[in-house]
């Protein structure tokens, strides 16, 4: 029993070397900073952004501990589909769609994790879980936002512009933009971006949790065959849920009228 339930095992058989984990976290952070500056995704949070983050985290908590927790009981524990994953992904996608700034994924996961500790888990194993949730799920979402910039889920190109100058033809817009993705209808773009985040979110649980955090906290042996199977088995449902989540996000954000 080490500090706060962390055994600090770095040499469990099959455990990912900690240098590699650190490298991913560091490289990811640097990447979202630099790339976010280029695409304009890096900006200061306004007060309303902070409120969106709070509401999204509250939804994720309600799903994780109350609604989803009971629905999940009907489905036996399986590697193909996760009820908790579904709700959390959609809640966080909605926050990302509303805020559309780099860092929203990490801040929202931080609040979600802090709330989970306050409401249910009681800070055991911290700060490892903060790092895990923020720098895997949060960071992966931020990488996609940094890549897509403010246009994530095809939101600005369709809703903002069309509300400003309704008369202009869409053909004009196409001529200006050289990127394939900008010519795509917003719904497809939303589905694709949701899908990418969904698939990225299928990775942390098997790779980072089973491969590093769990052995680091408790020790034990890492079963890489199970990890690879876990990722492959989860991807089909992650694709579908991610795509649906992206479309839902687009609908909600447009209903809110940003």
């Amino acid at each position: 029993m080490g500090f706060n339930g962390i055994s600090g095992v770095l040499s469990a058989p099959g455990e990912i070397p900690w240098e590699l984990v650190l490298l991913f976290f560091g490289a990811g952070l640097v990447f979202i900073f630099i790339w976010g500056k280029r695409t304009g995704g890096l900006a200061k949070f306004t007060t309303v952004d902070l409120i969106y983050i709070g509401i999204g985290a509250a939804f994720a908590v309600v799903w994780e501990f109350y609604i989803g927790a009971f629905l999940g009981k009907f489905i036996p524990s399986n590697p193909f589909f996760g009820v908790g994953y579904t709700g959390r992904l959609i809640a966080l996608l909605i926050v990302a769609g509303l805020v559309r700034k780099v860092g929203v994924g990490m801040v929202a996961m931080f609040i979600f994790n802090l709330l989970s500790d306050l409401i249910s888990y009681g800070f055991s194993g911290e700060p490892m879980y903060f790092m895990y949730e923020m720098l895997t799920y949060g960071l992966m979402m931020d990488i996609v936002i940094a890549l897509a910039g403010k246009n994530i889920f095809g939101l600005r190109s369709s809703s903002r512009k069309s509300s400003l100058n309704k008369g202009t033809s869409i053909g004009n817009e196409n001529a200006v933009s050289s990127n394939v993705f900008s010519r795509m209808p917003g719904v497809y773009l939303a589905a694709i971006e949701g899908l990418v985040i969904g698939v990225l979110w299928a990775i942390p649980e098997p790779v980072f949790y089973s491969g590093f955090i769990a052995p680091f906290l408790y020790g034990g042996v890492v079963d890489w065959a199970a990890i690879i199977f876990g990722i492959l088995a989860f991807i089909p449902s992650a694709l579908i849920i991610g795509a649906i989540g992206g479309v839902i996000t687009r609908r909600i954000v447009r209903a809110v009228g940003l």
Binding site: F45, T47, L50, I51, I53, G54, I55, A57, A58, F59, V61, V62, Y66, V107, F110, I111, L114, L115, L118, I119
Partner: peptide, 18 residues
């Protein structure tokens, strides 16, 4: 303070969701 603000919004929101 910005982080705690988000947290407090979340705490207020949970019962309101129900």
């Amino acid at each position: 303070v910005s982080i705690t603000f988000s947290l407090v919004v979340a705490m207020r929101t949970i019962p309101r969701i129900f």
